[in-house]
Design a protein around this nucleic acid. Structure first.
Lengths: 214, 214
DNA sequence: CCTCCGCTTGACCGGGTGGTCAAGGATGTA
DNA sequence: TACATCCTTGACCACCCGGTCAAGCGGAGG
């Protein structure tokens, strides 16, 4: 019988959760590859067979962590903006709740960023990020249609916002988990709202200047 | 005699370069850990001992690739903005040349993003990114002092810009290396310039709304 | 009390890893 | 030619990895 279609008792579900939790922490702290299955089961305090009772492989466990993390973040953001009508307010709230989720789930974000660099996991990550970008692009498109913000490629705007939020989250919030993330989040919101309002800037942008030394 | 203080002939230097080049490609394609030293020397077409003639360890090779990549990007950006006086023009040119460099060095960027997630390599990456952020923060500070852009934390602005450029580079330009990166770069410039001009936006930002479900 | 089955154990396996090294070929210099 | 130095070889090593499995435990339902 395969691990994925086993019927688990309450005790079994709890053990499974525990393994996911410990593995997420260890993978994020030491790296996925440097962390062995033995490390995980030792940290949990069980025999090695337990791991393979609940998971088909080490890779399957990481895949599940990544998938669950991406869907959880998406749901968190969707729920947050559900009651808001104004698209620009939706954007701000989406940025806020997205960063709050990232700050509260640093380990998962580290794993997602790792997985994006390894071709075995990257397709799944790319798909999730495309979904996230599409989620963000929808209100942007509406805002453009309503004339609330200048005309620009909604997908590029959405990707830019994802870039700002993920990077600030990774470098500043994760650097000091104890610190209050609010100022960083406020800065991200201000920067992103400025960015989406900025498409046509007359007289600021310099000439194309294709001066490359490379 | 240790590899690091060997005196290499022209042939030796060439071999060393070749190993770095091949390893960079393989590490980026398959991942650092899944790529064995045997994979690298096989791809180069030499015996295993050659690797350890030029490098102390697999880890030392990656560290060197990362360090060289970060310094090369920094120099590229510094050289590009050297002759420009206006701080806002410096910012735009810095964003442009930075993204051009990233587009031309996808493999190295992939390795940098990987290394940032593994604690063994992360300190070096963080240091390099702090330097890059400081480089970008300097013209921002001047622009603020001169009243060219609104008052805001230059470091947060710099980190936001790094986030946009790296993410757009990683997700869009790397996704299709054959495509012309210019439209993406233009979008990044517009978004970032908008972001740094955006600090005080009256009547746009909604109320703080600390509605969290978590 | 017994039986069943979800759960656990940990020794074991094949194979791959990073790294070493004694030996020998290639190259430049004198 | 002779010699030193640079470079290359590839078998070899100790170790550890992900994964397997026969055996046994223990709690819930009968």
């Amino acid at each position: 019988m395969e691990p994925e279609d086993r019927r688990l008792t309450a005790r079994g579900e709890e053990r499974r959760r525990q393994i996911i939790e410990v593995a997420t922490r260890l993978f994020a702290e030491q790296g996925y590859h440097p962390t062995s299955v033995a490390d995980v089961v030792d940290a949990v305090g069980v025999g090695k067979g337990v791991f393979y009772w609940y998971f088909a492989s080490k890779e399957a466990l990481l895949t599940e962590i990544l998938r669950d993390g991406q869907t959880a973040r998406r749901r968190h953001q969707r729920d947050a903006i559900a009651g808001v009508a104004d698209p620009v307010a939706q954007m701000e709230l989406g940025i806020r709740t997205g960063m709050e989720w990232m700050a509260a789930h640093r380990e998962v974000m580290t794993l997602i960023r790792f997985a994006a660099t390894e071709e075995r996991f990257a397709p799944g990550i790319r798909k999730g990020e495309a979904t996230a970008a599409a989620d963000a692009a929808a209100p942007l498109r509406r805002a453009i249609d309503e004339g609330r913000i200048p005309d620009a490629d909604p997908d590029l705007l959405a990707r830019s916002i994802v870039g700002v939020t993920q990077h600030l989250s990774a470098t500043l919030i994760h650097a000091d988990p104890a610190a209050d993330p609010t100022p960083v989040i406020d800065a991200a919101v201000a920067f992103c709202i400025g960015g989406i309002l900025a498409a046509p800037i007359p007289g600021i942008l310099a000439a194309p200047t294709p001066t490359a030394t490379d």
